[in-house]
Simulated assay, not measured.
Amino acid sequence: MDQSRSRIVVAPDSFKGTRSATEIAAAMAAGVRDALGSAVTVIECPLADGGEGTLDALAASLDAEVIEVRTLDAIGRPRRARVAKSSDGKIGIIEAAEANGLPHVCDVDLQPMRADSYGVGLLARYLLDDGVSEILLCIGGSASNDGGTGFLSALGARFLDAENNEVALGAAGLADIDSVDLSALHPRVAEVTIVVALDVDNPLLGPEGAAAVFGPQKGAGAEEVAAIDAGIEHLAAILHAETGTDVTAIPGAGAAGGLPACLVPLLGAVLMPGSDMVMRAIGFADLCSDAVLVLTGEGSFDSQSLRGKVVAGVRRATPADCPVVVIAGRVALSPQQTREAGISAALSIAPGPARFDELSISTTELVRNTAAHVASMYAAFAGVPTTSATQIAS
């Protein structure tokens, strides 16, 4: 092997519910070193996709200060949430789930018609008041289905019914909206660029849309899913009439309960896969430009992995001639589906039939062992001496 190209990059997402991306990357790197020793250089590059962990990944790459501020959860209860601000004060970072995340409202019965994104808007208001010129908004993991109306309301927008009264927050009020009043919108919104990090590319409406796919995760039954979808469709029509922008045609507009539906036409927000946002911030393309192998992964490698998640982003950013191997807690795609996605192979860390709680206990060790297997297989084909072979030779 050409030693000038002996770089292996490990770039996983978190294994949600078990280990952070940083912990998984360290375990992968340890496994590669177990197999190959000093024969390669291993670069650890923990990633995130716009959901859990994205704020930390971006804050680390931008050397940003993390601050706790007051806000509200998805059902209006006070809580404290983290935001971050770059050292030059120009870039603010929000992880929406810090405010309206699903875990924060799981202590009570889920309320899919009531839950809103108002608390996320309060975080944006804080950063606007603090003078940032760009907001990186990571929206995965939300509990709301309000099309972004709560977010805009926190910034001063008013969603009015036919009698000029403000409608209820949450999905429950969407069908009553007749017009949008932006006269009291925060004065700095027009000066600030908002970049929205998406963790999925689902459309706003229909069988793959915000309500149908994610509504049940947020507590919506069949009737509520239909009501949410109809309400968001009505909102989209109002926005189209008032701004000329058809948000139903925008890939990713269905993320986070349709949060982008209001942000794109009313605030001029730019949508971007969250994994791409993080990779751009850390210079991932340069890190893997001369890599001979890239390892990535997440808790479950399935069809959603190919729709805006870290795995898809890693494949896009990695040179076409460099193999990308996925290590996951669960592999739900067939070998053919994996190859069609440009992934060389996908391996589960499970040594055999096992429950989630059993795998959770030993996640780090299992990831390390699996990475060592991958590195050994790579070495066999590339002619790289493994650690054991070197020791035997000596």
Rank of each mutant, 00 (worst) to 15 (best):
371 A>W: 11
392 I>Y: 07
42 V>F: 03
35 A>I: 11
174 L>R: 00
227 A>P: 05
89 G>C: 10
335 P>G: 08
260 P>M: 04
190 A>V: 12
43 I>R: 08
155 L>H: 12
246 D>A: 09
209 G>A: 05
8 I>S: 09
117 S>T: 15
158 R>W: 01
285 A>C: 10
329 G>H: 04
279 M>L: 00
72 L>N: 00
75 I>D: 14
107 D>R: 12
194 I>W: 08
94 I>H: 05
45 C>A: 12
95 E>N: 10
194 I>C: 15
143 A>S: 09
49 D>A: 10
107 D>V: 01
44 E>L: 06
170 G>Q: 12
289 S>R: 15
191 E>W: 02
238 I>V: 15
383 G>F: 04
130 D>I: 10
361 I>V: 15
312 A>C: 06
73 D>T: 01
375 A>I: 12
157 A>K: 15
187 P>A: 09
374 V>A: 11
322 C>E: 07
298 E>L: 09
74 A>N: 00
102 L>D: 02
134 E>T: 14
62 L>E: 11
262 C>W: 05
72 L>P: 05
280 R>P: 00
225 V>Y: 04
259 L>H: 08
162 A>Q: 14
67 I>N: 03
7 R>T: 15
46 P>F: 04
333 L>A: 05
160 L>W: 11
334 S>M: 05
240 H>Y: 14
287 L>Q: 15
233 E>D: 15
209 G>P: 09
343 I>L: 03
220 A>N: 09
88 D>Q: 06
326 V>W: 04
78 P>N: 10
311 V>F: 01
136 L>R: 14
207 P>Q: 03
393 A>M: 03
254 G>T: 13
63 D>A: 13
355 R>E: 14
303 S>M: 06
137 L>F: 14
193 T>I: 08
252 G>Q: 10
271 L>K: 11
126 Y>A: 11
292 V>Y: 02
332 A>L: 09
287 L>Y: 07
143 A>E: 03
287 L>K: 15
301 F>W: 02
279 M>D: 01
227 A>I: 02
215 G>D: 06
230 A>P: 03
380 A>R: 08
86 S>M: 14
201 D>F: 06
271 L>I: 11
305 S>Y: 08
173 G>A: 00
73 D>I: 01
205 L>G: 10
335 P>K: 06
182 L>N: 06
243 T>H: 14
226 A>L: 11
380 A>F: 08
183 S>P: 05
359 L>G: 07
344 S>H: 06
135 I>N: 06
6 S>M: 13
219 G>F: 03
162 A>G: 07
110 L>M: 10
254 G>A: 13
231 G>Q: 03
7 R>I: 13
266 L>N: 09
72 L>K: 04
218 K>W: 06
23 E>N: 01
270 V>W: 07
9 V>M: 13
244 G>E: 13
202 N>L: 02
184 A>H: 13
72 L>W: 09
318 T>A: 00
76 G>I: 12
150 G>V: 00
2 D>G: 03
94 I>R: 09
340 E>T: 00
41 T>N: 04
101 G>H: 03
312 A>Y: 01
302 D>H: 08
20 S>D: 07
60 A>Q: 15
43 I>V: 15
99 A>E: 05
1 M>L: 12
86 S>W: 14
